[in-house]
């Protein structure tokens, strides 16, 4: 049985690109570490969307499965990243990433 509405892959890819650009801009522009983090998640999920879209187009499971790996890694990353942010907050009483520029050359 065919789906009634077939959304073309192009649209998925465009949405994915828009989401990714939003994520990039978020990472570059935002100062709050939590928001930067969320933007990173947005980029990851943009990638995920592109993966599943192509997977549907070609009728292959590879892309679908790969998304699970990305989500797992993202979860692990969130765990580590949030822990880091908590640790930074405890020492600097701030989560503004512009305050963390001691590592300059």
């Amino acid at each position: 049985m065919q789906p009634t509405v077939f959304v073309p892959t192009d649209l998925y890819v465009m949405l994915s690109a828009v989401l990714f650009v939003m994520g990039v801009l978020g990472v570059l522009i935002r100062r709050n570490a939590i928001l930067v983090f969320m933007s990173v998640e947005l980029m990851l999920n943009a990638g995920n969307l592109a993966l599943v879209a192509f997977a549907r187009q070609w009728g292959l499971a590879n892309g679908q499965v790969f998304v699970f790996f990305v989500m797992t890694v993202a979860a692990a990353e969130v765990a580590v990243g949030l822990a880091l942010i908590v640790a930074i907050f405890r020492t600097k009483r701030s989560i503004d990433i512009d305050d963390l520029h001691e590592m300059k050359g």
Binding site: V24, V27, I97, K104, G105
Partner: peptide, 18 residues
């Protein structure tokens, strides 16, 4: 000259990655 690139701001690094 080169050390000026190392600003310490994360976004600069992110931009260069981009």
């Amino acid at each position: 000259g080169i050390r000026r690139l190392q600003t310490g701001y994360v976004r600069v690094y992110a931009l260069s990655v981009l």
